Amino acid sequence: MEKFNLTTLMKRLTALAMVAVMFVVTGCGDDDDGGEPAPTLNLYETMSAESDLTQIKAYVDADADLKAMLEGSTEYTFFAPNDAAFAKLETLLGTGLETVAPQIVSQVLMFHFAQGAKTQAELTGSSVVTEQGESVVVDANGNITTGGSDDEVLITKGDIRATNGIMHKVETILIPPTIYASIGVNLGKLSQAVLLSANFTTLASAVAKADTYAADNSLPTITSYLTGDTEYTLFAPTNQTFEAINSDPAVVLAAYTAQQWYGILSNHFVADDGNGADDNVTVDEAELTTGATFTTKAGATLQIFNNTAAIPADNGVGIYIDSNGDVDLGDSGTYTNFDAEVALLDAFEGANGKLHVIAGVLAPPM
């Protein structure tokens, strides 16, 4: 039997102390600087685990590049709008984000990501450049001032750590300042329906091309009709109409010069319904009767035919439009010359007029 002595006891205590220190050091290696367990989920998995981030997850799932970002090794600060943020934006726009033009949605989404993992404390009183190119600014109180309609966006839950960054939940969808400036001009106007909508992206591109001619010739732009205070009735063809001409929007746009597009698009606007008996200048459904005529901004005449007994509804409600004068309402043999059918009445009504969706293009007489 080993003899007990003080020297032996001290050696054993020293050995136990070293083992204890090793356990402590090893245990600390599993934690982050705040003493919390190191994250095991990437940003995509972290987002997916949150029950109130279902809508932003749906947009990420629909974008392979964005999903790859959240699953990759590059660190990001991710401002994740919760489901309530999407509801708030829908109230603002009067429609969901899914109806907004894809190129705008893409820029808005990328505005929620900045390279580098920044904690809420590190963000406070500073700014970060996002993947969209503009900066998210955080004030001294830790609130985001670049939220578009909300200039004091709360981070409802911050510092949610992932293996490839940090996620902060926010109560508002963040909109890049330049885009919000455009949205602010368009809200409640015909331009909201045309320039911001996913359904009219080809028409919006045609407007941009026509406006180059207007600017070069000191003429009112098509955009000014859409955004101004004067009320108009707009007969608007959707992407589907242009796709029937050619599936490639670039081919459709190249088919006409800027000057021709200016004339064509001007022919889709009516400034006065010609009815002094009502209290508005827009063309209502009741005024779209057979034989009714309306003068367009191009100076041409739109002639209406509303008789489904003679021509059954095809792509809409059975209201047909002749835009270039080659239909004789007294000669049914000319009915194949109608240029468009009204597809959806009163699709949008705003502060400066209303929009009827049409299947067709209203080119003026050549």
Score class of each variant (00 low, 15 high):
D32L: 04
V60I: 15
A214H: 01
L253I: 08
D83N: 13
I160Q: 07
A210Q: 01
K169A: 09
P176N: 01
Q259D: 02
T295V: 15
S135D: 06
E71M: 13
A87I: 07
L226D: 02
A258T: 11
T290I: 09
L344C: 00
S126E: 08
E171G: 05
S126I: 09
P37T: 11
E45I: 07
A250N: 14
G350Y: 13
A85P: 09
Y335L: 05
P81N: 06
Y225L: 08
T296Y: 10
G142T: 06
G350P: 11
G165T: 08
G27E: 08
T99D: 12
T227I: 10
E152K: 14
A351Q: 14
D52S: 12
D32Y: 11
Q132P: 07
A20H: 09
Y320E: 11
Y320L: 14
G35C: 05
L219I: 00
L355W: 02
P365A: 14
L196N: 10
D151R: 09
N324G: 02
K88Q: 12
A292V: 09
S73M: 08
A15S: 11
D284M: 08
L97P: 04
V281S: 06
E134K: 01
Q259R: 01
F23W: 12
Q192V: 12
L97E: 00
F269T: 04
L265H: 01
Y232D: 04
W261R: 04
D273S: 11
Y213I: 09
T289M: 09
A162D: 04
V361K: 03
M366F: 12
D273W: 06
G158N: 02
Q115K: 14
T301M: 13
S73F: 10
A214M: 01
N280I: 14
K157A: 12
T178D: 15
T46C: 02
N246W: 13
P177T: 15
E131M: 12
I321T: 03
G34T: 11
A15W: 12
A310R: 07
A38G: 00
Q303G: 02
V283T: 02
L195H: 09
N141S: 15
D229F: 11
E45V: 03
G142R: 02
E71A: 09
N306F: 04
Y225D: 03
G96T: 14
K3L: 14
A214F: 07
G125I: 14
G274F: 09
A310S: 11
L92M: 13
Y180T: 11
I179T: 15
V185P: 00
A215P: 00
Y44A: 10
M167A: 10
I264T: 03
K67H: 05
A140S: 14
T130P: 08
D322E: 10
A340S: 10
N280P: 00
P177M: 05
T74C: 00
G147K: 06
S126N: 14
A313K: 03
Q192P: 06
F235L: 03
H356I: 12
A215Q: 06
A258I: 11
L196H: 07
D339T: 08
D346W: 03
C28L: 15
V21H: 03
N186E: 13
F78P: 05
E285Y: 06
L329W: 06
T8F: 10
I160E: 04
E285K: 12
I319N: 00
E75Q: 11
T145S: 11
A244P: 03
V281D: 03
G316V: 13
L97G: 00
F294C: 01
E71T: 13
L344T: 15
A363R: 06
G158R: 04
F23V: 09
F113C: 01
Q103R: 07
F294I: 01
